[in-house]
């Protein structure tokens, strides 16, 4: 077999390791799916009455795309934890001492984490449908899901890079802690227009905002709009941001992985 085919075959073997984890520890998967659902229900039923939403919108119609984006953001620390735990436990070194394709370690992580996020997103979509959220069209919904997973894909590489740099799972707690403020500093839950001017600008340029705004547009759900350039081109930016993040962190992760022998 060629190098590429081995890289993919070995990558799938590494990814399957995670799938076996799911089978061996189903409760972990169930909790992974339930966590964003619980947050969604908490927001929807507890805070929902007090939050200003776009005129004429039901709160869940507005909230759900924000939660979908937020869930993709949570994947960042999940990847980081997995990568740094493997490094700390010597599993990465064991892989590196095998005659397998070296790139398979990263490919396997990417595939497994993307599948996991797709599963969690599917759970949350089902939750959304259950509480009354509706996408306007199937085609749009497919496009929105694609953009959400694209954001997750880009964060994979950021998480891998951070995990390889940190080398121990403890550092992931810091990233986990930062995910909420970074998520709140976006249009996912509130209008950037209601924030102090400079903060609103940061929130509008948050990659999460672009993905969430694009998802709202494609799902046909109400959004904030906005006059700034970035707010007027959500779909373009929902592609551009992940592509840029991937370009930077893919290179950084691969380089960092190769430098493990230094």
């Amino acid at each position: 077999m060629t190098t590429l085919r081995w890289a993919l075959a070995d990558g799938w073997t590494v990814a399957r390791r995670d799938l076996i984890h799911w089978r061996n520890q189903p409760m972990t998967v169930v909790f992974g799916i339930t966590f964003p659902i619980m947050i969604t229900l908490a927001f929807g039923y507890l805070f929902g009455g007090a939050v200003r939403v776009p005129p004429g919108a039901g709160y869940f119609d507005f909230l759900m795309p924000g939660m979908y984006g937020m869930t993709m953001l949570f994947g960042l620390s999940a990847t980081m934890v997995a990568v740094s735990a493997d490094a700390a436990k010597g599993v990465t070194d064991r892989f590196r001492s095998l005659p397998m394709a070296p790139s398979a370690v990263l490919i396997g992580r990417a595939v497994a984490d993307l599948l996991h996020s797709a599963l969690v997103l599917a759970g949350l979509l089902a939750c959304g449908l259950a509480v009354g959220w509706r996408p306007a069209s199937a085609g749009g919904a497919l496009g929105a899901v694609g953009l959400l997973l694209l954001l997750r894909f880009s964060l994979l590489w950021a998480g891998m890079y951070l995990g390889l740099v940190a080398r121990e799972p403890g550092a992931a707690v810091a990233v986990q802690t930062l995910e909420f403020p970074v998520g709140f500093l976006s249009n996912a839950f509130v209008a950037p227009g209601t924030m102090p001017g400079w903060l609103g600008t940061i929130a509008e340029w948050n990659p999460l905002s672009s993905t969430v705004a694009a998802a709202r547009q494609l799902f046909g759900n109400p959004g904030w709009g906005g006059d700034s350039w970035v707010a007027r081109h959500p779909v373009l930016m929902a592609v551009a941001w992940p592509v840029a993040i991937t370009a930077v962190f893919f290179v950084l992760s691969v380089r960092r992985y190769r430098l493990l022998d230094r």
């Binding site: 076996i20 984890h21 061996n24 010597g90 599993v91 070194d93």
Partner: peptide, 9 residues
């Protein structure tokens, strides 16, 4: 030096 097996498998 560290036992490098997958503990969940």
């Amino acid at each position: 030096q560290h036992t490098a097996v997958d503990e969940l498998l």
